[in-house]
């Protein structure tokens, strides 16, 4: 009995000894943001991600262990535009960490660094789960990611001035690479004929990608954001896909497949399922994630394996 307590106690003691000397603690909500933060921070910060790419960031559970991560954080990186509003605010309040509260130097809202799309003039819940500040799903657009990388570099430099030069350099190198990646992929998609540039989506989460790659979104399977389709709307989706000749239906893996598969079966279009973010815990880089998404999308639109 006594022996069983020794190991946990030792473990605890090591964390007490080890913690004061540690580098900057960065906590990001989404895997894409965590992956970007890891590259900008380099070896000067430990980056943790609150959600896995399997989790829909609209509907995550407010697990109490996340309070601990937020409690220890020096920098909290959020997507913003109310994407995390269903679970993060209560956790942040319980984190009793003034460094990461809204408005503090350790609170980084990625949406402040990007050019927002779909900012509604008028907001009403009858429109569904609308985000008043604009569409929050910019993480798939490497042009947005390039802006975020630069802004992250500035935030990290403020918090850790001793390594400001390194953060600025990392951010600048990363953002240049991301812009090059954006241009390279856009060029490949530019070669697609008009008929292969039309797509449908499940949730309205690809507007930044559509804008980046000059594609055309013809319809969403959800009649309004967050509202699952009824048979009437599905009939409209099928009719629209037939009329426009849209080639692909794109959705994140955490959205239901049944409706999309049904539309695909009736229209012959392809369903392209993309991961919700990079495999951060397996060290996948943001750029590799975006390349993977672009490949899946290209093949669905153009045909291929």
């Amino acid at each position: 009995m006594k022996r069983s307590l020794v190991w946990p106690a030792l473990l605890w003691a090591t964390t007490l000894v080890a913690s004061p000397a540690q580098a900057l603690q960065v906590v990001a909500t989404l895997p894409s943001l965590a992956a970007l933060a890891r590259e900008v921070a380099g070896s000067y910060a430990a980056v943790e991600c609150l959600l896995s790419p399997r989790q829909d960031p609209h509907y995550a559970d407010a697990r109490p262990n996340l309070i601990l991560s937020l409690h220890r954080a020096d920098l909290l990186v959020v997507n913003g535009l109310e994407l995390e509003v269903g679970w993060l605010p209560g956790l942040a309040r319980q984190a009793r960490n003034p460094k990461i509260q809204t408005g503090a130097a350790g609170y980084f809202d990625a949406s402040m660094a990007v050019l927002r799309l779909q900012v509604p003039g008028q907001v009403d819940r009858a429109m569904g789960d609308i985000h008043p500040g604009g569409n929050p799903h910019f993480h798939l657009d490497p042009r947005a990611a390039a802006h975020i990388a630069v802004a992250l570099g500035k935030s990290l430099s403020t918090l850790d001035p001793a390594h400001a030069a390194e953060y600025a350099k990392n951010a600048s190198v990363l953002s240049a690479r991301l812009r090059a990646l954006a241009a390279e992929i856009a060029q490949r998609f530019a070669a697609l004929p008009e008929a292969e540039r039309r797509l449908a989506v499940y949730h309205d989460s690809l507007v930044y990608l559509v804008d980046w790659l000059h594609l055309k979104q013809v319809i969403a399977v959800e009649p309004r954001p967050g509202i699952p389709p009824d048979p009437g709307h599905l009939a409209k989706v099928v009719a629209t896909v037939r009329t426009t000749g849209a080639r692909a239906l794109v959705q994140e893996e955490y959205y239901p497949r049944a409706a999309s598969d049904q539309v695909a079966k009736l229209t012959g279009m392809r369903v392209a399922v993309v991961a919700g973010g990079p495999q951060f815990s397996a060290n996948q880089r943001y750029e590799d994630y975006v390349r993977g998404v672009a490949k899946t999308l290209y093949e669905a639109l153009h045909g291929g394996p």
Binding site: D61, A62, P64, V85, G86, L88, G90, L91, R125
Partner: peptide, 10 residues
């Protein structure tokens, strides 16, 4: 429910 309501605990 209408308006802005904070997130709930676990």
């Amino acid at each position: 429910l209408i308006g802005a309501h904070g997130s709930h605990g676990f």
